[in-house]
């Protein structure tokens, strides 16, 4: 029996060679998209799981937007313009749900596939490298996150919560947030030993969700706490989306984008190296 050289190998060399300069050999075969293809096949059958995830931020939007607005009164949006409470929390909920979705996918799901289903062992027995696996899984998480974000934005549009045409950019921005959290989530997962460790993820995510200014502006905090919260990634996500939604853009936008780019890059490199250590040993 003979094997013809898989046709994609030569084509992917150009792409692969860039990654090869910074990563050890054998990490990347330039074929992360086949891992993505697998995810599509799996979820074609269990679309309900995907579909249901769309509703969580909507519930928050309806429940807290309608119920709290009277208690909270008028709030000030970016640029100091008064806006409705619902319009205030909507972009923040979008950022939070991008984070939550990406973290869930990259911790729970990845941990299960790695430790129990041995899925990555099977993938790495083929000519795929760890970076293909990491990119494919993150790509899937992004696709799913993109669907949710688009759905949520349509609801915002219909409810008249978008104040600017810049709001369209919330979609790529939400994907950037998801990408950064997904990459770091996978890196963290690669250090986990038992399901108990997954609970600790909650310990990091829940306070970030509630403290990062989703439901009120950071001005209620004492100065020191404000500084701490301003260092957290979700704060940057919320500030970025709120700014885009209101069309108030300033230099801070660049800082937000840079923050997430660095986060994604670090997460991705750590993940690829860890998968290499964990699975190829």
């Amino acid at each position: 029996m003979t094997l013809e050289a898989p046709p994609t190998i030569a084509a992917s060399n150009a792409r692969a060679s860039i990654a090869l300069r910074v990563l050890p050999p054998g990490l990347y075969a330039g074929r992360g998209y086949v891992v993505l293809e697998r995810a599509f096949r799996v979820y074609r059958r269990s679309w309900m799981v995907i579909f249901s995830g769309f509703f969580e931020p909507l519930f928050y939007l309806f429940a807290l937007g309608t119920g709290l607005h009277k208690l909270v009164g008028t709030v000030l949006g970016p640029g100091g313009h008064p806006i409705s409470y619902t319009a205030f929390i909507a972009p923040a909920l979008l950022a939070s749900s991008a984070m939550n979705g990406a973290v869930y996918d990259s911790t729970m799901n990845v941990f299960f596939k790695m430790k129990y289903a041995k899925l990555y062992d099977a993938m790495l027995a083929t000519s795929l490298g760890p970076l293909d696996v990491a990119l494919g899984e993150i790509g899937w998480a992004l696709f799913r996150g993109g669907l949710y974000a688009a759905g949520f934005m349509i609801v915002m549009l219909v409810m008249g919560l978008m104040a600017s045409a810049w709001a369209v950019l919330m979609l790529p921005a939400a994907l950037l947030i998801a990408c950064a959290f997904g990459a770091v989530g996978m890196a963290v997962t690669s250090y986990m030993k038992s399901f108990q460790d997954l609970d600790l993820v909650q310990v990091a995510i829940l306070p970030m969700f509630l403290f990062s200014g989703t439901f009120y502006s950071l001005s209620v905090y004492p100065a020191w706490l404000r500084v701490v919260v301003e260092c957290l990634p979700l704060h940057h996500g919320i500030a970025m989306l709120r700014g885009l939604n209101s069309g108030v853009l300033d230099g801070a936008m660049i800082a937000h984008v840079a923050y997430f780019l660095v986060m994604a890059a670090v997460g991705l490199v750590v993940t690829a190296r860890r998968l290499d250590r964990l699975l190829l040993r």
Partner: peptide
């Protein structure tokens, strides 16, 4: 099928 795709087969 998917395993074959991992090898880059068409």
């Amino acid at each position: 099928y998917v395993y074959g795709r991992y090898f880059g087969m068409s």
